[in-house]
Design a protein around this nucleic acid. Structure first.
Lengths: 357, 357
DNA sequence: CTGAAAGCGCTAACAT
DNA sequence: ATGTTAGCGCTTTCAG
């Protein structure tokens, strides 16, 4: 390690600086023999840099292992490289999958994610979000159900001119985000039940305030229609997406004189509750009654019998929503709606209608 | 709206500025009739401000609805007001509860949370974390299992001098963070099983690389000892915390000539797998075999029969870990280890040993 | 295509 | 107890 050659000196001093202080854009500029601004251009993919210069800068960045300091960029620039995910925890599992997907996209594009727990329908939600957007200088927000359906909030976000993307929003007009054809999914599920010979199919609804509940009910009715079955209001009972509500709703159905041979619950948790209620009466699934759910959460294959349900690619949905949002952030109007595919997961909880019935 | 009176002018200009640009510390200083620095002192709870002045400043902050811009504070100051949570998803549910707790504490103390998905035992984990710490200027990190047990990482964090807090770390020496007495919890569970008359109690182990597995096994052995039961190696089978592994392990146990009358699985998912395996053989839980788990995840009460298990206050653990970390951030050495209580959740999956046995 | 200078909003160090 | 000054590291004008 001689200290005679200038090159060695330079390398050494750079080392020291990197260790002690921190490599700054100025150091990179010096190393590449260009100005700070040119380095900045390269970093931000701006036009008007010759390929040769770009290469020089990139090499210097690599060599010095330079990474821009986020706070400095934010302070100086217009963008904050920060998006927030607004949520009112619908379910730990669903939310975490979405979050992981969002994180995937954010990391890939060097954006940061901030989490904003909110309470759906609380009257201070707009103030809270506004404070967040202004204070944290958010570049955009991701809305998860059921926050997606707060019209007042949507309006305010539009007034503020801040890009947003929603996941499974009820109203899809003018939105950026991702949706899955829940209506179609439920229709397929109903077709599956009908093909097994079921004629009395019940539905346990989800929480009334959630958009998903309406879709799933609509799919149920359309499914009945297509199978040539009559809608019977007594076979539709309210739940609220929780295990307990599914349990209670199913007990009500089991008390009917003419009980159903199949139950479509609006999500897996309620379906699990349904199975429990059925088992407790000494009936068997699917021997006596078939049960199916929606979401394909882990519980779907961790209960006995394993649940027939509908799978949505949750993590992918998070990733795509974030991707569309970031497009929108870069250029208003460039984000779109992505329709992701669902898949029926046929498992043991559904079977042919029992012949004695 | 006259423009003659200076006071009105000032108010109006403040309004405009607040709307168009943004309220800055300078505006607050002007409104309070003090210098920028004094406002800064009040904002940061620094000493050497007279109560009167403090009051003046606070009133101005309130009136102008002033909020400091994070990036500016970070750039100018030493702290980043940012902590990261390092994780290698052990389970969506567990992680989300921890995260919500951490978020509670961070929000209360005006800190931001960054999420860092990692892969336990990957060889680039140290580089990744180091890049994060340096680049994002983290004030501290929170470690979740199993990342808590990466000794090389812990050493590096200490070298870097960056505060960290861990949740349920295997080695608790010199750590800041939160722990629960898992050993004691398992002993209690074993005492419960023994009191029901069980003499042949099996254990399905967790993933070998996780600290929790070792604790739970140790608690199992100690529990046997206290109940005066002999340890039988054939009754201990390996799992890896997944539903499938619990299912497979239980099938192995059921194939034994002298099969157990109770199974303690190292977590709920595996216990759910165990119940499935038992049911599939036409045996009943707890009639033929009692099953218990650990964690009290939602699945514990969503399967049939509901699972006897151990509950840890997960969200609270996240909150406490973050709280201790932030103490440590403010003043090295001020954070400590918090021992949180566990609770046995007795449900239907455990019962008296069958008399025929 | 490139560079020089002027801040972004705040805090640190040093006055006073 | 309070104020003054000089940056933090980057981007944005605006000028070449």
């Amino acid at each position: 390690m001689g200290d005679t050659k200038p090159a060695a000196d330079e390398a050494a001093s750079e080392q020291v600086r990197a260790k002690a202080g921190r490599v700054r854009i100025e150091d990179v500029a010096e190393a590449a023999g260009v100005s700070m601004k040119t380095v900045s251009r390269v970093l931000n993919n701006e036009p008007n840099v010759s390929p040769r210069t770009r290469g020089l800068v990139e090499a210097a960045v690599e060599k010095l292992r330079y990474r821009p300091l986020p706070s400095a960029r934010v302070l100086a620039g217009r963008r904050s490289y920060l998006v927030a995910m607004l949520f009112d925890n619908p379910s730990n599992n669903y939310l975490m999958e979405i979050e992981l997907g969002v994180l995937d996209a954010c990391q890939a594009q060097h954006y940061n994610l901030m989490l904003a727990p909110l309470v759906y329908n609380a009257d201070d939600i707009i103030d809270k979000v506004e404070a967040l957007v202004v204070q944290a200088q958010l570049d955009g927000v991701i809305l998860t159900p059921p926050i997606t359906d707060d019209v007042a909030l949507l309006r305010r976000l539009e007034e503020l001119g801040i890009p947003y993307a929603s996941i499974s929003a009820k109203e899809q007009n003018r939105h950026v985000g991702v949706v899955v054809d829940e209506h179609g999914a439920v229709c397929s599920m109903m077709a599956h039940l009908a093909s097994l010979g079921h004629r009395r199919i019940a539905h346990v609804r989800g929480h009334a305030a959630h958009g998903a509940s309406a879709w799933r009910l609509a799919g149920y009715r359309e499914g009945l229609r297509r199978a040539g079955l009559r809608y019977d209001a007594r076979l539709v009972v309210d739940g609220e997406f929780s295990y307990e509500s599914g349990y209670a709703a199913t007990n009500a159905l089991l008390d009917l004189d003419d009980r159903p041979t199949a139950i479509f619950a609006a999500n897996d948790d309620m379906a699990a509750g349904a199975i429990c209620a059925i088992c407790e009466r000494g009936l068997s699934v699917p021997g006596d009654i078939s049960v199916c759910g929606f979401d394909d959460t882990p519980i779907a294959h961790q209960i006995y019998p394993a649940l027939t349900t509908v799978r949505q690619p949750t993590r992918e949905m998070g990733r795509l929503a974030a991707t569309e949002l970031l497009k929108e952030v870069r250029e208003l109007g460039s984000g779109g709606i992505v329709d992701v595919p669902y898949a029926l997961q046929l498992r043991r909880s559904t079977g042919p209608v029992s012949s004695v019935d």
